[in-house]
Amino acid sequence: MSKAVHAKNLNIYYGSFLAVEGVDIEIKPKTVTALIGPSGCGKSTFLRSINRMHEVIPGARVEGSLTLDGKELYGPGVDPVGVRRQIGMVFQRPNPFPTMSIYENVIAGQKLNNKRAGKKATDELVERSLRGANLWNEVKDRLDKPGSGLSGGQQQRLCIARAIAVQPDVLLMDEPCSALDPISTLAIEDLINELKTDYTIVIVTHNMQQAARVSDFTGFFNIEGTGKPGHLVEMDETKTIFSQPKQKATEDYVSGRFG
Protein backbone atom coordinates (compact mmCIF):
# COMPACT_ATOMS: atom_id res chain seq x y z
CA MET A 1 0.00 0.00 0.00
CA SER A 2 2.51 2.54 1.17
CA LYS A 3 4.69 4.44 -1.24
CA ALA A 4 7.75 6.68 -1.13
CA VAL A 5 7.65 10.44 -1.59
CA HIS A 6 10.62 12.12 -3.20
CA ALA A 7 11.09 15.89 -3.62
CA LYS A 8 13.91 17.29 -5.72
CA ASN A 9 14.75 20.99 -5.66
CA LEU A 10 11.12 21.85 -4.93
CA ASN A 11 10.12 25.52 -4.85
CA ILE A 12 6.63 26.43 -3.67
CA TYR A 13 5.07 29.75 -4.63
CA TYR A 14 1.96 31.69 -3.65
CA GLY A 15 1.58 33.91 -6.69
CA SER A 16 5.00 35.53 -7.07
CA PHE A 17 5.91 34.97 -3.43
CA LEU A 18 8.41 32.16 -2.93
CA ALA A 19 7.25 30.46 0.26
CA VAL A 20 9.51 27.41 0.37
CA GLU A 21 12.78 27.06 -1.51
CA GLY A 22 14.85 24.13 -2.71
CA VAL A 23 13.47 21.22 -0.73
CA ASP A 24 15.27 17.90 -1.30
CA ILE A 25 13.73 15.15 0.74
CA GLU A 26 13.24 11.44 0.51
CA ILE A 27 10.45 9.89 2.52
CA LYS A 28 10.65 6.13 2.73
CA PRO A 29 7.61 3.86 2.71
CA LYS A 30 6.25 2.62 6.04
CA THR A 31 8.09 5.21 8.09
CA VAL A 32 6.98 8.18 10.13
CA THR A 33 8.64 11.42 9.13
CA ALA A 34 8.22 14.44 11.39
CA LEU A 35 8.62 17.99 10.09
CA ILE A 36 9.59 20.50 12.77
CA GLY A 37 10.52 24.15 12.76
CA PRO A 38 9.34 27.58 13.85
CA SER A 39 5.97 29.01 12.76
CA GLY A 40 5.89 30.32 9.21
CA CYS A 41 8.90 28.29 8.09
CA GLY A 42 6.94 26.51 5.36
CA LYS A 43 6.66 23.03 6.82
CA SER A 44 2.85 23.04 6.56
CA THR A 45 3.08 24.51 3.07
CA PHE A 46 5.43 21.71 2.05
CA LEU A 47 3.14 19.13 3.64
CA ARG A 48 0.12 20.49 1.79
CA SER A 49 2.03 20.53 -1.47
CA ILE A 50 2.46 16.75 -1.21
CA ASN A 51 -1.25 16.18 -1.86
CA ARG A 52 -1.66 19.46 -3.76
CA MET A 53 -3.94 20.87 -1.05
CA HIS A 54 -2.03 24.16 -1.08
CA GLU A 55 -3.58 24.76 -4.50
CA VAL A 56 -6.83 25.57 -2.69
CA ILE A 57 -5.30 29.04 -2.38
CA PRO A 58 -5.51 30.77 -5.78
CA GLY A 59 -2.11 31.38 -7.39
CA ALA A 60 -0.30 28.59 -5.57
CA ARG A 61 2.13 26.59 -7.71
CA VAL A 62 5.37 24.63 -7.51
CA GLU A 63 8.59 24.30 -9.45
CA GLY A 64 10.87 21.29 -9.33
CA SER A 65 9.98 17.68 -8.91
CA LEU A 66 7.77 15.85 -6.44
CA THR A 67 7.20 12.16 -7.04
CA LEU A 68 5.18 9.36 -5.49
CA ASP A 69 7.02 6.09 -6.17
CA GLY A 70 8.63 7.72 -9.18
CA LYS A 71 5.38 9.15 -10.58
CA GLU A 72 5.45 12.92 -10.95
CA LEU A 73 2.65 14.45 -8.85
CA TYR A 74 2.73 17.74 -10.75
CA GLY A 75 3.19 16.24 -14.20
CA PRO A 76 1.06 17.41 -17.11
CA GLY A 77 -2.34 15.77 -17.09
CA VAL A 78 -2.17 14.82 -13.41
CA ASP A 79 -5.47 15.65 -11.72
CA PRO A 80 -5.06 17.05 -8.19
CA VAL A 81 -8.28 15.24 -7.29
CA GLY A 82 -6.61 11.94 -8.17
CA VAL A 83 -3.52 12.86 -6.14
CA ARG A 84 -5.66 13.58 -3.08
CA ARG A 85 -7.39 10.23 -3.38
CA GLN A 86 -3.98 8.53 -3.05
CA ILE A 87 -2.60 10.80 -0.35
CA GLY A 88 -4.83 11.28 2.68
CA MET A 89 -4.70 14.19 5.08
CA VAL A 90 -5.58 14.88 8.70
CA PHE A 91 -5.91 18.51 9.73
CA GLN A 92 -4.95 20.60 12.72
CA ARG A 93 -8.50 20.93 13.96
CA PRO A 94 -10.75 17.88 13.81
CA ASN A 95 -13.17 18.36 10.92
CA PRO A 96 -15.72 15.57 10.65
CA PHE A 97 -18.63 16.51 8.40
CA PRO A 98 -21.19 17.86 10.85
CA THR A 99 -24.19 16.88 8.78
CA MET A 100 -23.12 13.26 8.51
CA SER A 101 -23.30 10.46 11.05
CA ILE A 102 -20.17 8.72 12.28
CA TYR A 103 -20.85 5.90 9.82
CA GLU A 104 -21.33 8.26 6.87
CA ASN A 105 -18.19 10.16 7.79
CA VAL A 106 -16.08 7.02 7.55
CA ILE A 107 -17.42 6.05 4.13
CA ALA A 108 -17.40 9.60 2.73
CA GLY A 109 -14.21 8.97 0.77
CA GLN A 110 -15.41 5.66 -0.58
CA LYS A 111 -18.60 7.28 -1.81
CA LEU A 112 -16.49 9.74 -3.77
CA ASN A 113 -14.66 6.89 -5.46
CA ASN A 114 -18.04 5.62 -6.63
CA LYS A 115 -17.24 2.18 -5.37
CA ARG A 116 -20.56 0.48 -4.99
CA ALA A 117 -20.12 -1.99 -2.22
CA GLY A 118 -22.78 -4.07 -0.55
CA LYS A 119 -24.13 -3.29 2.90
CA LYS A 120 -22.06 -6.03 4.47
CA ALA A 121 -18.81 -4.96 2.82
CA THR A 122 -19.45 -1.34 3.79
CA ASP A 123 -20.17 -2.33 7.39
CA GLU A 124 -16.90 -4.23 7.43
CA LEU A 125 -15.02 -1.27 5.99
CA VAL A 126 -16.46 1.02 8.66
CA GLU A 127 -15.55 -1.38 11.44
CA ARG A 128 -12.06 -2.00 10.05
CA SER A 129 -11.36 1.72 9.66
CA LEU A 130 -12.71 2.62 13.08
CA ARG A 131 -10.74 -0.23 14.66
CA GLY A 132 -7.70 1.01 12.75
CA ALA A 133 -8.22 4.41 14.33
CA ASN A 134 -8.77 2.90 17.81
CA LEU A 135 -12.27 4.34 17.92
CA TRP A 136 -14.47 1.31 17.33
CA ASN A 137 -15.13 0.38 20.96
CA GLU A 138 -16.10 3.93 21.84
CA VAL A 139 -18.59 4.51 19.01
CA LYS A 140 -19.83 1.10 17.88
CA ASP A 141 -23.20 1.64 19.60
CA ARG A 142 -23.84 5.06 18.12
CA LEU A 143 -22.68 4.91 14.53
CA ASP A 144 -25.80 6.77 13.40
CA LYS A 145 -25.12 9.76 15.68
CA PRO A 146 -23.48 12.90 14.30
CA GLY A 147 -19.68 12.94 14.30
CA SER A 148 -19.68 16.42 15.79
CA GLY A 149 -21.08 15.03 19.03
CA LEU A 150 -17.81 13.27 19.86
CA SER A 151 -15.01 14.73 21.98
CA GLY A 152 -12.15 16.52 20.22
CA GLY A 153 -9.82 13.55 20.47
CA GLN A 154 -12.50 11.16 19.24
CA GLN A 155 -13.32 13.51 16.36
CA GLN A 156 -9.68 13.55 15.34
CA ARG A 157 -9.54 9.76 15.39
CA LEU A 158 -12.75 9.74 13.34
CA CYS A 159 -10.96 11.94 10.80
CA ILE A 160 -8.07 9.46 10.76
CA ALA A 161 -10.56 6.61 10.25
CA ARG A 162 -12.09 8.58 7.38
CA ALA A 163 -8.66 9.11 5.84
CA ILE A 164 -7.55 5.46 6.10
CA ALA A 165 -10.91 4.10 4.90
CA VAL A 166 -9.85 4.82 1.32
CA GLN A 167 -6.50 3.06 1.92
CA PRO A 168 -4.25 5.90 0.82
CA ASP A 169 -0.60 5.42 -0.14
CA VAL A 170 0.56 8.19 2.15
CA LEU A 171 -1.04 9.81 5.21
CA LEU A 172 -0.27 13.47 5.90
CA MET A 173 -0.91 14.97 9.34
CA ASP A 174 -0.84 18.70 9.91
CA GLU A 175 -0.33 19.21 13.66
CA PRO A 176 -2.97 16.59 14.42
CA CYS A 177 -2.68 16.93 18.19
CA SER A 178 -2.35 20.66 18.67
CA ALA A 179 -6.04 21.06 19.54
CA LEU A 180 -6.14 18.05 21.84
CA ASP A 181 -5.55 17.34 25.54
CA PRO A 182 -2.56 15.18 26.59
CA ILE A 183 -4.55 11.96 26.92
CA SER A 184 -6.10 12.28 23.48
CA THR A 185 -2.66 13.19 22.17
CA LEU A 186 -1.27 9.97 23.61
CA ALA A 187 -4.04 8.00 21.92
CA ILE A 188 -3.21 9.58 18.55
CA GLU A 189 0.52 8.98 19.01
CA ASP A 190 -0.08 5.31 19.81
CA LEU A 191 -2.23 5.16 16.73
CA ILE A 192 0.52 6.66 14.56
CA ASN A 193 2.86 3.94 15.77
CA GLU A 194 0.37 1.27 14.72
CA LEU A 195 -0.45 2.91 11.40
CA LYS A 196 3.13 2.99 10.18
CA THR A 197 3.08 -0.75 9.61
CA ASP A 198 0.73 -0.04 6.72
CA TYR A 199 1.20 3.57 5.71
CA THR A 200 3.83 6.15 4.94
CA ILE A 201 3.18 8.96 7.41
CA VAL A 202 4.36 12.54 7.32
CA ILE A 203 3.49 14.64 10.37
CA VAL A 204 4.02 18.33 11.03
CA THR A 205 4.36 19.12 14.71
CA HIS A 206 5.36 21.98 16.98
CA ASN A 207 5.94 19.59 19.81
CA MET A 208 9.52 18.32 19.71
CA GLN A 209 8.89 15.61 22.31
CA GLN A 210 6.15 14.38 20.04
CA ALA A 211 8.49 14.33 17.05
CA ALA A 212 11.02 12.40 19.13
CA ARG A 213 8.38 9.95 20.33
CA VAL A 214 6.59 9.07 17.12
CA SER A 215 8.95 9.57 14.21
CA ASP A 216 11.72 7.57 12.55
CA PHE A 217 13.02 10.53 10.57
CA THR A 218 12.90 14.23 11.28
CA GLY A 219 13.24 17.17 8.94
CA PHE A 220 14.01 20.61 10.34
CA PHE A 221 12.64 23.61 8.42
CA ASN A 222 13.83 27.13 9.12
CA ILE A 223 13.41 30.65 7.83
CA GLU A 224 16.04 33.38 7.83
CA GLY A 225 13.64 36.26 8.31
CA THR A 226 10.16 37.48 7.45
CA GLY A 227 9.58 37.65 3.72
CA LYS A 228 12.35 35.17 3.04
CA PRO A 229 11.54 31.66 1.82
CA GLY A 230 11.64 28.74 4.22
CA HIS A 231 13.96 25.86 3.49
CA LEU A 232 14.78 22.39 4.72
CA VAL A 233 17.88 22.75 6.88
CA GLU A 234 18.50 19.14 7.75
CA MET A 235 16.85 15.79 7.50
CA ASP A 236 18.08 12.67 9.25
CA GLU A 237 17.11 9.87 11.56
CA THR A 238 15.19 11.28 14.50
CA LYS A 239 17.71 10.18 17.13
CA THR A 240 20.54 11.81 15.15
CA ILE A 241 18.61 15.09 14.81
CA PHE A 242 17.93 15.21 18.54
CA SER A 243 21.38 14.06 19.71
CA GLN A 244 24.03 15.15 17.22
CA PRO A 245 22.61 17.25 14.38
CA LYS A 246 25.05 18.38 11.69
CA GLN A 247 23.79 21.96 11.52
CA LYS A 248 24.18 24.54 14.27
CA ALA A 249 20.67 25.93 13.59
CA THR A 250 19.11 22.50 14.16
CA GLU A 251 20.98 22.02 17.40
CA ASP A 252 19.88 25.46 18.63
CA TYR A 253 16.25 24.73 17.77
CA VAL A 254 15.95 21.25 19.25
CA SER A 255 17.76 22.28 22.41
CA GLY A 256 15.61 25.36 22.85
CA ARG A 257 18.26 28.01 22.04
CA PHE A 258 17.17 30.36 19.31
CA GLY A 259 19.11 32.78 17.17
Partner: peptide, 26 residues
Protein backbone atom coordinates in the same frame (compact mmCIF):
# COMPACT_ATOMS: atom_id res chain seq x y z
CA UNK B 1 -16.32 26.58 7.32
CA UNK B 2 -13.06 26.31 5.32
CA UNK B 3 -12.32 23.33 7.51
CA UNK B 4 -15.16 21.29 6.06
CA UNK B 5 -14.46 22.33 2.50
CA UNK B 6 -10.84 21.24 2.94
CA UNK B 7 -11.93 17.97 4.54
CA UNK B 8 -13.90 17.13 1.41
CA UNK B 9 -11.15 18.27 -0.96
CA UNK B 10 -8.50 16.30 0.91
CA UNK B 11 -10.58 13.15 0.46
CA UNK B 12 -10.31 13.69 -3.27
CA UNK B 13 -13.58 15.47 -3.92
CA UNK B 14 -14.03 17.48 -7.10
CA UNK B 15 -15.41 20.96 -6.66
CA UNK B 16 -18.98 19.81 -7.23
CA UNK B 17 -18.54 16.86 -4.85
CA UNK B 18 -17.10 19.22 -2.26
CA UNK B 19 -20.17 21.43 -2.66
CA UNK B 20 -22.42 18.42 -2.20
CA UNK B 21 -20.52 17.15 0.85
CA UNK B 22 -19.76 20.37 2.68
CA UNK B 23 -21.50 23.45 1.28
CA UNK B 24 -25.05 22.26 0.59
CA UNK B 25 -25.55 20.36 3.85
CA UNK B 26 -24.22 23.35 5.76
Amino acid sequence: PKLHEEAALALGATRWEMIRMAVLPF
